[in-house]
Amino acid sequence: MDIFTQQLVNGLVLGSIYALVALGYTMVYGILELINFAHGEVTMIGAMVALSVIGVLAGVAPDLPGVLVVLGGILVAIPACMLLAFGIEKIAYRPLRKAPRLAPLITAIGVSIILQNLAMLIWGRQYVSFPEILPTTKFEFLGAHISLLQIAIVVLALTIMAGLWLLVEKTRLGRAMRATAQSREVAELMGVNVDRVISATFIIGAAIAVIAGVMVSAYYGLAHYYMGFMLGLKAFSAAVLGGIGNIAGAMLGGLLLGVIEALGAGYIGDITGGFLGSHYQDVFAFFVLIGVLVFRPSGLLGERVANRA
């Protein structure tokens, strides 16, 4: 088996998921210049709600195809998390819209802790496992094993990214979002209800996050009340790598980070002579984050920071 191709495939799968979560960070940052640290937790809640529904569905209708069961879970979790994100923005962030930037940032961390604890109370401290209902078909491709699930994740993620791209570039709402990101005041002068555009941004980000949350739990076969923390941090790193505030940047950053991480994990044993193992894979995301912040703070596709201020 070719370790390079295999890790490249694994990295692309992981990277697609990072990219989806990173979109939520970058869209909110683009409009509010707020790092919504609760976004990782929204992803986690999405996975948890979906898993609960999937568990119930699989119990009452064992003959239903696995894909439909998962789809059912997603369809319940999406509106739930849209509502959650709408509420978070309205209750926690909107009153602080004119406060110094540190205040909403700290609030975001607070919201994230609240959601983690809430999830712990509801779903417990144990790992919730993803029932084995999805087909486990595998293919051989250039010496790598690729599962049907992996293909589905990448294809679905790319479809969502393309859809979001169209929404932002071609629709009236998307244009209003871009205008609001550049100047809230002037957007209001055009007749844009900026509060509504900001709500829409949070809601869209949450819907995408749910899908990412379900993907990651299906991929690893489990979910956990704490999973949003690391996933959120990595997605945030991906957003920074691509240039935070830039939607194409989040997509690129996510995919790139996934590949860097997977290749790093694949070769770290060889590089360090077996001293460090693949469980150090999380390290790479943060190496990348630090590297970007030191050498190119505006990210790969971001504008110069001075332009934003």
Binding site: R175, R178, A179, Q182, S183, E185, V186, L189
Partner: peptide, 8 residues
């Protein structure tokens, strides 16, 4: 200051 959207 005109307030045009420079990136549109």
């Amino acid at each position: 200051g005109r307030g045009i959207f420079g990136r549109l």
